[in-house]
Amino acid sequence: MSENESGYGNAAELPLRERKKRATRQRISNVASALFRERGFEQVSVAEVARAAEVSTMTVFNYFPRKEDLFLDRIPEAVEVFSGAVRHRAPDETPLAALRRLALELLDRRHPLAGPDRGFPDFWEVVADSPALRARGREALEEIENALAESIAETAPDTLDPALTAALTVAAYRTVYVTTARRVFAGEPAESLVDDHRARVCAAFDALERALTPA
């Protein structure tokens, strides 16, 4: 998804073999992303990515089961990060509070999952030009929503409707993200929108709390 190293998990604490695997995965994704930006997603084959990354086609598919995942490479991270925030929250913290905290922490770190950054327009232009990538993006939202619903159901069984909570949370997060994205596409510097983005994240979670907290 970006040329930055994927951020889920603490890489420094991983065994050497796992660190090497992550480095290989990131290198393949970076090579693929550069080719897709240069020529378009549909015009680049997996075999070309493999040659440019100096690995076999089988190796590419070992790391990325689908071609689309070479570019949208943060999907597993998004699923893990958002569902993990619910699963590993403090005993006195609600799922929505944990997700709010996560959203603000990601924004403070300028993480790509938090909102558009300086490389955003180039990235999403590739997605916009590819029906396959757009379809994979929609599937990714469903994967995140399903993982969230499962984590809420398992760790907060008193939640009235875990599936509804997950669906509304994903929709709210996406709406805030898309609003900022449109402004970046219109030419506003991403960094100048951070405070407004933060305020809209908080407003979205305030609305979710009001809508989903039993009276």
Rank of each mutant, 00 (worst) to 15 (best):
V86P: 05
L102F: 07
F82A: 02
A203N: 07
T94Q: 04
V86A: 05
A52C: 13
R182H: 14
S130H: 12
A97E: 12
V176C: 04
F71P: 04
F61C: 08
C202E: 14
N146I: 13
E48G: 00
G9C: 10
S192I: 02
A128C: 09
A153P: 00
E154V: 09
A149F: 00
N10L: 10
T159Y: 10
D206V: 03
A128E: 12
P121E: 11
Y177Q: 07
R66C: 07
R200M: 15
A172M: 01
E18G: 01
R22G: 07
E209N: 04
F64E: 08
P131S: 11
A149W: 08
R22K: 13
E54C: 08
S29Y: 00
A78K: 03
E139T: 13
V46W: 03
L107Y: 11
S83E: 06
E150S: 00
A172R: 04
R118N: 13
V55H: 09
F120E: 12
L148S: 02
A47K: 03
P162W: 02
S130M: 01
L208C: 02
P189G: 02
N146V: 14
R110T: 07
P95K: 10
T175E: 15
V127D: 06
S56T: 15
S192M: 04
I75M: 09
E188S: 15
V49Q: 10
V176D: 02
A23M: 07
A85W: 09
F82E: 00
D117C: 08
L96N: 03
A163L: 05
C202H: 07
A166Q: 08
V194Y: 11
A90Y: 01
L148W: 06
S56W: 09
K21L: 13
E209W: 10
T94L: 12
S56A: 11
E38G: 01
S45G: 08
I75H: 06
A52G: 03
P116T: 12
L96S: 11
E142D: 15
S151F: 03
F41L: 13
F36N: 00
L14T: 04
T155L: 11
T57Y: 09
A172E: 11
T169S: 05
H197Q: 03
A199Y: 00
L160I: 12
N146G: 14
R182F: 08
D158L: 10
P95C: 13
V79R: 01
E77K: 05
T180Q: 08
R101V: 13
H88R: 15
P214E: 00
L106A: 10
A11K: 14
L160T: 15
R89G: 09
R101I: 14
R118P: 01
T57H: 06
V81W: 06
F61Y: 15
R138T: 01
S45Y: 10
L106Y: 02
Y63S: 09
A203R: 03
